[in-house]
Design a protein around this nucleic acid. Structure first.
Length: 788
RNA sequence: GGGCCGGUGGUCUAGUUGGUUAGGAUGCAACCCUCACACGGUUGAGAUCGCAGGUUCAAAUCCUGCCCGGCCCACCA
């Protein structure tokens, strides 16, 4: 008897022809004409120019489980691949690669360099997804539903601009001059969501102020001496007896000799520094609040280029660092610096460039988000979160939102703000929706200003925050503003899968913006993943050098062990998990097991009709059916972990070790001890259970299940129906007792050094096993069975 | 400082509506090439379930405090 599966084991080399075939035949393309319900997945577009990392690959693999499962349960799955090509990361890469500051180049030149970076960025990440067996709708850039899309394509940018135009008209956007987070490195305003904190070394300087009334010295500690020129007040804690007598008096700042009031205020802590502090505009966010609270007039000393301006007197024209040095020298010269101490200072930095941010007053566009906080919270509560506890991260963030969303940026490689201004009266002019505009190099869409009749216009030069682009991904994939019928029918998007670290950005902004535009929640489900960390539990990062490239893992072990590992290792919606090659490799053993079980079964010719089953057969079918029920329920809730663990266990410990052993002789039937029907019943059941296992596992391990199923049935398993629970007869015995009974007999024979085939004269077993007597007798070579 | 999460054999992990000899995987040791599979099988060693209290007939599981790790937020002259 020759098995239909000839190879002795599964090999990772079997994968390549398969994914190439799937890609070539466009098997998973989205069919717009399908009558099936649409299950849409708004996948996170990774940056094209950064290699995929193992955590990212793992999350796409998990999304692929969902997509494949949904396809097998009668859904038309919208699962497009998007690639993010906008914004600072691209510009940073260009600056690094060409060793230039883009801000010092003409705009066209800067954009050209970014384009070159994008051209050079290989399709390495896409290749990794392909090799991982991800069933994206398409692998080619296109305009059809489900095609690969770029966030910098004219279509995508046109939609971004279209949403701006709509929001502008709805009065949701306004321009205002106020203090913003400003990154001197990127030379642009950034949102609170783009700020992160770093511990940076800094120097704490004790400098001398003087009291005008008493002439006494006041020693004040500061890390920002260059801001003395903006000092608006000197404060100490109301309970601080040391300074009580200064209340209401006047301090004279060093070097600048400006008079400022001295007050008590709880913001000053007695234990910190000298207990008395200068309040400047603006060293950090508390300063901003303080100036507002005290109704002080801020002094702006840093300009848009990150340099000190004329308010800084002798420091004028210097960058922050240089200005600080110069100020310290000046203080030293005047003997007004009485102490210095190195400290580590938690500093707000730009999440992209890592430059310390400054607070500078600038005119920017804002999206009204403060008004929406109650609505956002309500939406957050209604969304289905997987796991539910991730909801809190979003709610916490909504609670901390304290200013409107600044959306304009002073950069180049991003979507342009579609506006022109009348040169005569300044009236802003909005173009009609429908195409992509570049106002800085394009003529205004109208000839005459509607307000003053002027004929000359200036194009807006600023661009959008990249989150203003990214926050429309579900609108884009659902053909918003392109095919209203499709959008209406298939919105909300079924699933947003994403990392926990971008809840405050991607998820929040998407919900906000889509709500502002459609007045509805754009998602039904939100699936939040934690992280894959390195073997020691540390976050992977380029600078630490512990990043694992999934391509290497696939080279070594293939995609299937990686995929199975991703399912078995843990529940990524609840906890981080560690990446270990050893364990990924270990997952491969289950593939071998499955392969060999299938290889064994493939030796027999499956019967054409369902034969009458014996009790051993109904028992295993009953067990398999429990698995079907469990898996189906869990998969619906995006839980592949628990079923995968259970299916794997069932495969090894129940099906292979016990059922197969029990019916082996019946399937071979070499001595014709069984009837043809009985033999067929075994073969039928072996095939049936194998099919169930394979279909349950097909979303997880698509390659091996595809090959086996095709060899056995000549069909593509991924286009078969996912098993549904069937009515099965409950066997007269329970599984554990049977397993124990078999094991005890095998153990006893081994203990006596006997072969497992050695005969047993008589044995007494419980009555309930009467139904499987024939198989049981053959398996253990028993001459006589007695029942108790 | 506030919040959230986690701390279970060497390693990773399940179990946390209180009652199991605390399950599995991996690793380790020993034996076995039994005709689907040595990427297999069998057996075995290995856990005071972070620490200290408390509630209870009974605690990995509930309560309190503490320690350690991670993440988020706020703040630091």
């Amino acid at each position: 008897m020759k098995p239909k599966l000839q190879d002795k084991r599964w090999s990772k080399d079997f994968e390549k022809p398969l994914y190439e075939e799937w890609k070539r035949k466009k098997l998973y393309a989205f069919n717009r004409k399908s009558r099936k319900p649409v299950f849409s997945i708004d996948t996170p577009p990774p940056y094209v120019n950064t290699p995929v990392h193992i955590g990212q690959a793992t999350t796409y693999i998990l999304m692929d489980f969902f997509a494949r499962f949904k396809r097998m349960t009668g859904n038309e799955v919208l699962f497009p691949l998007g690639l993010d090509r906008n914004g600072l990361p691209i510009e940073m890469a260009a600056e690094k690669r060409f060793k230039v500051k883009l801000t010092s180049l003409p705009r066209r030149k800067a954009i050209a360099l970014c384009k070159r970076i994008l051209e050079e960025s290989s399709m390495a990440s896409t290749e990794t997804f392909l090799r991982s067996g991800i069933s994206f709708n398409s692998w080619v850039l296109g305009k059809l539903t489900g095609d690969v899309y770029y966030t910098d394509s004219p279509e995508y940018r046109a939609l971004t601009q279209g949403t701006f135009i709509d929001m502008w008209k709805a009065g949701l956007i306004y321009e205002d001059e106020r203090v913003c987070n400003f990154c001197p490195g990127c030379r642009t305003t950034i949102a609170d969501a783009e700020v992160e904190y770093r511990n940076l070394p800094s120097t704490f300087n004790d400098i001398v102020f003087r009291c005008k009334e008493t002439g006494e010295k006041i020693i004040i500690g500061t890390t920002r001496p260059e801001l003395v020129c903006t000092c608006g007040m000197v404060i100490f804690n109301p309970n601080d007896k040391r300074y009580k007598h200064l209340e209401g008096k006047t301090a004279i700042t060093p070097v600048f000799e400006k008079e400022v009031p001295i007050r008590s205020h709880p913001a000053a802590e007695m234990e910190k520094g000298t207990g008395i502090m200068m309040m400047c505009s603006f060293g950090d966010l508390t300063d901003i609040r303080f100036f507002r609270e005290m109704k002080l007039e801020p002094v702006i000393a840093i300009d848009k280029s990150g340099k000190m301006n004329r308010n800084a007197g002798i420091l004028r024209g210097l960058g922050i660092e240089k200005a600080r040095q110069k100020m310290i020298e000046e203080l030293k010269r005047k003997k007004l610096l009485v102490g210095q101490k190195r400290v580590s200072h938690r500093t707000p930095v730009c999440e992209r460039s890592k430059d310390p941010i400054e607070f500078i007053s600038m005119k920017e566009f804002y999206v009204r988000q403060i008004d929406q906080k109650p609505k956002m919270k309500e939406m957050a509560k209604k969304l289905k979160f997987f796991s539910p506890r991730s909801r809190q991260i979003l709610i916490d963030w909504i609670n901390t939102v304290s200013i409107d969303w600044p959306i304009s940026r002073r950069r180049y490689y991003a979507t342009e703000i579609p506006l022109w201004y009348c040169k005569k009266c300044g009236e802003p002019v909005l173009p009609p929706k429908g195409r992509y505009y570049q106002p800085w190099q394009e003529k205004a869409p109208i000839k005459k200003c509607p307000k003053c009749g002027g004929g000359e216009f200036r194009g807006e030069e600023r661009v959008f925050d990249t989150w203003f682009d990214s926050s429309i991904s579900p609108l884009y994939i659902l053909m918003y503003d392109k095919d209203d019928d499709f959008f209406r029918k298939h919105s909300p998007c079924t699933l947003r899968p994403q990392g926990k670290e971008i809840i405050r950005t991607w998820l929040y902004y998407t919900l906000l913006k889509c709500y502002l535009l459609t007045k509805k929640s754009i998602f039904r489900d939100v699936w939040i993943n934690y992280h894959i960390v390195d073997e020691r539990g540390h976050k992977m990062s380029k600078s630490v050098g512990n990043v694992i490239d999934p391509a290497d893992v696939i080279d070594r072990f293939g995609a299937e062990p990686l995929r199975l590992w991703a399912a078995i290792e843990g529940n990524l919606t609840r906890t981080d998990f560690r990446c270990s090659f050893e364990r990924i490799e270990g997952a491969g053993k289950t593939l071998t097991k499955l392969w060999n079980v299938a290889r064994f079964i493939s030796m027999f010719q499956a019967p054409e009709h369902k034969p009458k089953l014996m009790e051993t057969d109904t028992w295993i079918l009953h067990e398999a059916n429990k698995l079907v029920e469990f898996a189906g329920k869990c998969y619906e809730n995006y839980d592949f972990h628990n079923p995968a663990v259970r299916i794997k266990h069932f495969l090894w410990e129940t099906f292979a070790s016990h059922y197969i052993e029990l019916v082996k002789s019946r399937a071979y039937n070499q001595n014709n001890k069984f009837s043809r029907d009985e033999q067929d019943a075994a073969i039928y059941t072996l095939n049936k259970v194998l099919d169930i296992i394979m279909k349950l596992m097909a979303p997880v391990i698509p390659f091996i299940t595809y090959i086996i199923y095709r060899k056995l049935h000549g069909k593509d398993i991924h286009f078969t129906e996912f098993p549904v629970p069937e009515k099965t007869k409950k066997p007269g015995f329970d599984t554990d007792t049977l397993l124990q009974l078999n094991s005890r007999i095998w153990k006893k024979k081994r203990g006596k050094g006997l072969s497992l085939k050695s005969p047993i004269k008589t044995i007494t077993i419980p009555q309930k096993f009467r139904g499987i007597e024939k198989d049981f007798k053959e398996t253990h070579n028993i001459q006589e069975i007695k029942y108790s």
